[in-house]
Design a protein around this nucleic acid. Structure first.
Lengths: 237, 237
DNA sequence: AATAAAACATGACAAAAATCATGTTTAAGG
DNA sequence: CCTTAAACATGATTTTTGTCATGTTTTATT
């Protein structure tokens, strides 16, 4: 009996790779990488890796969305980063040779490759361009984190909430026909990103809705007045 | 007439280098680096580089302390990082090939080397170990930034203030005889790190002083009850 | 479809922290 | 050394935000 064509076609034909740090790899390197990676399917809400665990490889998101989250004080969650197709996750602990300080949890069904740790370090060493891509990625994440610090230090919750909606739009884009922000987060998750209580988050979204800045349909958020949202976020120009 | 022995002895004999990312360089690389770097002396309060400027090189702190600061909303300062001897500064914008998003200002008289941009990229490419040291440094800074995010999101000002004092102690250490935290920051600067108003910062330091957690003499801060300070910071164990 | 459990929503209240005002002390510059 | 500005300090007040309580809606599961 003939075997079905496998879904996974390998790194050579991976279209996601071109938008990732691995776009600098070529030919033999891809064949080699293919031998040192495996691809897994995750359901919504599954852990890709968990706080305190030991890294065994680097994760590369094929499809689906992932939140990078850490447990703060009194067990309160903090969303640190959001990842999408083409993003690498789990690199910080891997590079620092530490246990994970955060967890990665899928926000929807996802397909994620894991590249073997030893191979990753080997190819990084032999391919300066790849390592430089990784450096640039971390630099960007540092910039994002520092922008977040300024925001948390200096803006009020209302401004940060508006900023978060703009961030979500920039990160995940809009649904083609509905024009809603293309990610499903609970109010609690949004609060865990913004750094506020769930109640304040709910209240502010309701207010924005009343003020016709956004329109709400379940978890779907549509930005109906972008200039006003930008103004509410108090973004410099 | 004989020229005086120059103060600057070059990268070969630089003791600071051993504690920096450049500790992996050897022999000829050091001679080469010496040709592509220059060393400058800064007075307290001087700019090493300024927000919006274009990076021309990488700075390496020889001696002295430096704050990395950015201008937030309504011109309010935010201290993002603190650097000391052996630290590299100005790497983020350099690597991302962007204008500086922050400024570096000396907190005391300092001596800082600047390594030419092109040479730095060249030696990074030819020395994977150096680039990996840089990756690790940025990863650490990202970790620090993300810890700060959790703190800003979830802790109150009192807890963050206690945490900041512990951070300052960990970063700059204690004076040998006085046992005071070895850095002079104004209350406003501490506030700009903690993410609070100057008044709240002053008030909390006074409270800590009254509660015998710390003792204040001018800008000098001495931690007199470390366990209580740790408890006040609400640090997990 | 029934039922349980999340998630969402909103009011009332309390706590936290910013702001404003004003005065004192300290440090820097002529 | 004097003068002036910056830094420090503290009280009073207001704003912001969190917490608690309670109810409704949505979603998931048997």
């Amino acid at each position: 009996m003939k075997k079905p064509i496998p879904f996974e076609t390998g790194c050579h034909h991976c279209t996601v790779r071109m938008h990732s740090v691995f776009n600098v790899l070529q030919g033999d390197q891809l064949s080699e990488m293919n031998m040192h990676k495996s691809c897994n399917v995750y359901k919504k809400g599954q852990y890709v890796f968990a706080e305190n665990g030991l890294p065994t490889g680097l994760f590369c998101v094929n499809s689906g969305k992932v939140k990078i989250t850490t447990t703060g004080y009194d067990g309160k969650e903090q969303i640190l980063r959001l990842a999408k197709s083409g993003d690498i996750v789990g690199y910080r602990a891997l590079i620092s040779n530490e246990r994970y300080a955060s967890s990665a949890v899928t926000l929807e069904d996802a397909s994620i490759c894991v590249i073997d740790k030893d191979y990753f370090f080997k190819v990084m060493e032999s391919t300066p361009r790849l390592m430089f891509e990784v450096v640039k990625k971390i630099s960007q994440d540092l910039k994002t984190a520092e922008d977040h610090i300024v925001s948390l230090s200096q803006k009020n919750v209302r401004e940060r909430m508006a900023e978060a909606l703009l961030f979500l739009k920039a990160t995940y884009g809009l649904d083609e026909d509905l024009q809603t922000i293309q990610v499903n987060l609970t109010r609690e998750e949004i609060a865990d990103y913004v750094g506020t209580s769930t109640e304040s988050c709910i209240r502010l979204l309701s207010e924005f809705n009343q003020d016709k800045i956004i329109s709400l349909t379940g978890k779907k958020i549509k930005i109906t007045n972008l200039p006003l949202l930008i103004q509410t976020a108090n973004i410099e120009d």
